[in-house]
Nucleic acid binder design. Sequence first.
DNA 1: ACCTGAACACCGTTCAAGT
DNA 2: ACCTGAACACCGTTCAAGT
Lengths: 231, 231
Amino acid sequence: MPGTTPSRGRTGRPPRTSRAQILEAAWRLIDRDGWQKLTMRRLAAEAGAAPTTLYHHVRDRDDLLTQLLDDYAARMPRPELPEEPRERVVAAATVMHDSLAAWPWIVEVLTAGDFIGDSALWFVEAIVQGAVECGCTPEQAVDLYRGLWYYTAGEILVRAGTARRRAERDADEGGVSVYDETVRRRIADSGLPHLSGLADRWPGLVTRETYPEGLRAFVDGLLSHARGGAA
Amino acid sequence: MPGTTPSRGRTGRPPRTSRAQILEAAWRLIDRDGWQKLTMRRLAAEAGAAPTTLYHHVRDRDDLLTQLLDDYAARMPRPELPEEPRERVVAAATVMHDSLAAWPWIVEVLTAGDFIGDSALWFVEAIVQGAVECGCTPEQAVDLYRGLWYYTAGEILVRAGTARRRAERDADEGGVSVYDETVRRRIADSGLPHLSGLADRWPGLVTRETYPEGLRAFVDGLLSHARGGAA
DNA sequence: ACCTGAACACCGTTCAAGT
DNA sequence: ACCTGAACACCGTTCAAGT
């Protein structure tokens, strides 16, 4: 659906390429073809401009990705968070996770490209605040945030990779997953007692959604260590 | 140092390109120029062959990366692990982390490309075994492994990205880190009370090595949840 | 069998030239 | 100002042809 944001005062003149139009075309392209297909040349075609025109609005490809990131961060939901500090931490991390899981490529850009968008700093604040209210020192609160971010980013990247791989390898076939069967056999043939015993159930076990449980376990562990629970 | 592994029975004949020679050249290239520079064409040049020759030994670029992965996995240290099951889990995860942190690109390939190499399955086994001996069900043990892997992969990817970014942006400058100063100011100007209060210390706080502490906290949290510690 | 050059269909980016 | 075509220096991969 092009032209969702109408250009005001449209005349007969050739359309000028605006920053907003470029970002709009980029989202359209990502939606339709996946973010791997977001190249400067394809984006230019989608926006109806010459490839070189883009360089009047973005410094380079990295800058484009950063702008897309900020655009997305500005759209992220900002729900009311629970008063209770531990629940506040869990809720903030969950929002962060769910927002990013919808667009795993954002995390790839985040880790490879630039810093988190300013408008997404609020949940860092929420997590640090919750941790401090739970009795953490500022250092411990930042460590807690970092741990949760590593866990969250890793979960999204690993699961997105697995999902893509399964989809690619099973694209031709119908019915049973060739990918799952390959993995099952490798586990079964590993000669490792615990793994091979679980081989038949492995594909099911590793696709279960376990982020929320892991998050709560991690938060509890980090808070109890901060309170002196560690050796 | 080319030709570390001498080709047996060298004659006057033009050297045949072997799988081992290709992998050797690939490691040399990665060591020297970074893994981003590992292209088929550059690899061919490094190996002293035509680009097209590579396709006799690898199916495509993905296959090359998978072979490099297996090559690396086969070299990973396999230390004796502690008897005590909780320490066994921690030790196995630490080996996994330290091995991969030396070559963060491996994790990128792992998440984007193919499954973990067969020869690296032993520490999955070690973690699952330790968890079971701690009283976990097989499901819980696999969940625990997955959680630790997400945390580990995320830590490596995020920190490698930050380090590379800082290095790139500070390449020209000497002395004070421009990158650190940029981040400091963004935190300070965020208007978020806890974050802006920490702005001056932020660069130091987020570069600290906290993997080991986070790991122990996560393991404790997961084990205590598995024992019914959760709500 | 093993290797190759030429070719195809792409990239990101620069820059002088057009309006 | 804003946009462009031509060009540069790359990619991964295929394929018919050479030895």
